[in-house]
Amino acid sequence: MPLMPKRVKHRKVMRGSRKGNAQVGNTVAFGDFGLKVLERGWVKATQIEACRVAINRHMKRKGKVWIRIFPDKPITQKPVEVRMGKGKGNPEYWVAVVKPGTVLFEVGGVNDATAKECMRLASAKLGLRTMLVSRSSH
């Protein structure tokens, strides 16, 4: 089940701005290794779920995974073959807005090789350039 908010204030929101770099959530805070994104964009809830599954499968129930982003932005789409106008479309999926520098996932309690492979697998599920970061890197 992909992540989504339980309660929202507004069903539909505007596209919003995503300028600048990540000012928060840009360091490895919980685990030993993290996956840092180098581009700005939207990460779908289904992509986050795919990454989580890929990481957990490779870790084989060892270690711990932290998901540092949450898809709290609803994205609407108009149905196919519908003329323009008649109001905004229906909410179809949820995304997390990420800026360059955001740490998406963290892993801990596993060795370096496993952590690196986990992050490589997770990176393949995303459409954004990423970088492996560790706690020790300044």
Partner: peptide
């Protein structure tokens, strides 16, 4: 894993 319904989230303030 609890299979939840893929419904819409509840609205705050009855919008």
């Amino acid at each position: 894993e609890v299979e939840e319904e893929d419904g819409e989230p509840e609205l705050i303030d009855g919008e």
